[in-house]
Amino acid sequence: MATAKHSSAAATAPATPGADTAKYQQLEAFLTGLKVDGADLAGRRAVLIPALHRAQEIFSYLPTEVQKFIAAHLNLHVSEVNGVVSFYHYFKTKMSGKHTIEFCLGTACYVRGAAKLIEKAESMLKAKLGETTTDGLFTLGSLRCVGACSLAPVVQIDGKTYGRVTAEQIPAILAEYQK
């Protein structure tokens, strides 16, 4: 890829120093490491989703600037990048709370009462699925079936799996994170 691309990409990164700069450097190192051929559009496209996965690992979500940064680096239209980001539910464009609670919405979990868990958590935390609590502590989300159907209904908090959860257990589980 032409060096001109790199400089223009760097220009889109926010100028403010701090934690973000380090994150952008991390992302840039990853993107540079991909060594894609600038003349190969299919090759540049093929690394887009891996790049977005990596960026989300680094930033925990994909803010506008990060999407533009990736677009500039891979020389893809921003619309194309955002089209991809907005297509896949795994990619998040909003900053999450300190902890992410995700409810499995698979059928097994549904049949075994996931809706009641959600209801309970929503009413306790005064936030709906997809929202973050006003104190920024929790983001409520949903999961596609994680395939742990024997544990239905399943709740994951920051990736930790809680199985066979009942609505009555929700307060105690949340309390672990409210300390």
Binding site: R45, V84, Y88, H89
Partner: peptide, 25 residues
């Protein structure tokens, strides 16, 4: 190659587009 949360990508043409780095349509 990683999926990114789209059920339709189980459909083979969608899956192929997704590997190509496109929207999984």
């Amino acid at each position: 190659k990683y999926g990114a949360g789209a059920f339709v990508c189980g459909e083979e043409t969608s899956l192929i587009h997704s590997i190509e780095g496109k929207r999984g349509e």
